[in-house]
Structures are given as structure tokens and as C-alpha cells.
């Protein structure tokens, strides 16, 4: 809201005498909250009501948009020697939303595909997962990788095959990393869309990934998108976490993030 004007930032037309505007709308330079909306009677004016509907519609579309695997696989094949297409046990979006447990498990063809690989040990396995916003993956995944890969090359990390996963949750990176004999796992996942952030990428980092890893054993970098955390700073923080994990051979609460930004846990934490 602060950077790009949305319909809600436009005041109602001057000539609309049914609307009482609020001069304190200018206090929006202190917050992105929808303050000073004005009123028609005591209700929301048309502009503000429809601006909300537009934001909600975009968030809904982000949740239900299918992952463009063709575009993404082409982009991944340019950047990695081997890219895999995998799928969770959640067959479709409706099942994915109702059954978080299935989104954490690979389906049988995916497990077989991984088992058939001539796996060697690698330092890092990268999984790209639709999560709750395919839009976030479409828009942020490849540019973020372009910011991250130079860091990994400089640190002489060996990379396993990259995996593109449909209908997945964060923990699906565990069986993938385990099958690829990876020391560390990086999961790029579409975060639960906020009303003004339908395109937010989350990054989860796990030392020694294996099925059954606890969430407390992960580190999270959240809100990666053009109007949130930049690709460069997220890549830098992830490189910092990798360096720290190699020193203490652990991730999660044992691995302190002493870079300046604060850690956030997202994805449906109950307050």
C-alpha cells in the first residue's frame, strides 16, 4: 500500500456528496492499515469496498493458481544440470487445503523417480514448492535463485538435482533432501497470501533433512518479494545461515540468525 497506489489510496470523487471523507487519511504515512476510509452513512464507500474486494480476489487467485511447471522447468534446466518434477500425495488444491499431512509426503511416482537416480552425496538440495501461492513461485523463485547461486558457488557448495514440487508443504523438502543424500535442504515455497501480499516467497533452511524433522529444526526467511525483503538480502541471509550451519552442524533454534533482520515464522501459526 505504501509504495504503489491501489484503488483504496484514491479518495472518493470530490463531487460525491454521499461520502464523508476523513482528513486524517494522511496518517497513512505512519501505517499501511486501511485508516481514514471515509464513510457513506456509517458504511464503507464504494471505492474502499471495491479496493478490498480486488485485494482479496488477487489473494484468492494466488491460492488457486496452478503452478506453471513448463515455464519453471525451462528456467531451472538453464540453471541446473538436472531438474526433477515431483508431486505430493495431495491430488488437487481442495485436498491440499484440507489435508496438510498429504502435502508433506511425496507420491509414489515421485519417490520412485528419486530412488532411480544414481545419487551421490551433495551439500545442498533445493526444492521449489507451490505452497499457498504459485504466483510467488512464478514471480520470485528464478530471480531469487539468480541472487543465491553465486553465493553457493563462491562457498564451493555441491548441489543436488533441483526439484519442482506441486501441491507441497514445507516438510516435503525433507524426503527429497534425504533421498538425494543432501547435508542441507533449501525449500522455496509460496507463502499464505496476505491481503496486500499475494506474491510472497518463503525460504526454509534445514540441516540434515530427513522425514520427520521438527519445524523447530528449521530457519525461515519470510516475505521475499519486490515490496518486501529483497532477493539480494534474502540470499545474503541464507548464505549466512549456511555458513553458520556448517560450523555447528545444526539448524533451527540452535542456529542464531545474527544478521539484522528479524526471523518470522509464518504459515498458519496459531496466535
Amino acid at each position: 500500500m505504501a509504495n504503489t497506489p491501489s484503488p483504496a489510496d484514491h479518495s472518493p470523487a470530490e463531487h460525491d456528496h454521499s461520502v464523508v471523507t476523513n482528513s486524517w487519511r494522511s496518517l497513512r504515512n505512519h501505517t499501511d492499515a486501511r485508516i481514514g476510509l471515509g464513510r457513506s452513512g456509517n458504511s464503507l464507500p464504494t471505492q474502499a469496498m471495491l479496493a478490498f474486494q480486488l485485494d482479496h480476489a488477487q489473494a484468492r487467485d494466488a491460492v488457486h493458481l496452478a503452478l506453471d511447471t513448463e515455464m519453471l522447468m525451462a528456467g531451472l534446466e538453464q540453471r541446473f544440470p538436472l531438474a526433477l518434477r515431483l508431486h505430493s500425495q495431495a491430488q488437487d488444491r481442495s485436498e491440499y487445503l484440507r489435508r496438510p499431512d498429504l502435502g508433506r509426503l511425496l507420491d509414489i511416482p515421485s519417490t520412485q523417480q528419486l530412488a532411480a537416480l544414481e545419487t551421490q552425496h551433495c551439500d545442498i538440495s533445493i526444492s521449489i514448492v507451490d505452497g499457498l501461492s504459485a504466483r510467488a513461485i512464478h514471480e520470485q523463485a528464478l530471480p531469487f535463485l539468480d541472487a543465491l547461486l553465486p553465493h553457493l558457488h563462491r562457498a564451493e557448495m555441491t548441489l543436488g538435482p533441483v526439484a519442482l514440487v506441486e501441491q507441497g508443504r514445507v516438510a516435503i523438502g525433507d524426503p527429497i533432501g534425504e533421498a538425494l543424500n543432501a547435508r542441507m535442504s533449501i525449500v522455496l515455497i509460496g507463502e499464505r497470501p496476505g491481503l496486500s501480499s499475494p506474491d510472497s516467497l518463503g525460504i526454509y533452511f534445514t540441516w540434515k533433512p530427513r522425514s520427520g524433522c521438527l519445524d523447530s529444526a528449521r530457519n525461515c526467511i519470510s516475505n521475499v518479494r519486490p515490496r518486501g525483503q529483497s532477493f539480494a538480502s534474502a540470499a545474503q541471509r541464507l548464505a549466512y545461515l549456511i555458513k553458520g550451519a556448517l560450523e555447528i552442524e545444526a539448524s533451527g533454534i540452535a542456529l542464531k540468525d545474527n544478521s539484522d533482520a528479524t526471523l518470522e515464522i509464518s504459515d498458519g501459526q496459531y496466535r
Binding site: A33, R34, I35, L37, L44, F52, D55, H56, L195, S196
Partner: peptide
Amino acid sequence: IPGADDIMLNYQTTSFHDALYLRE
């Protein structure tokens, strides 16, 4: 909450306007 949009918890709850509607 302003405009039903909680920008901290990222969910939608009822707005000041909603309460006024109900009172009316």
C-alpha cells in the same frame, strides 16, 4: 480493525464500519 484488514496477522476480521452496521 481498519478496513477489516489486519496487516500484522495477515487475516481479515471485522472493521469499524462493520460494527456500526450491526449497531444500526
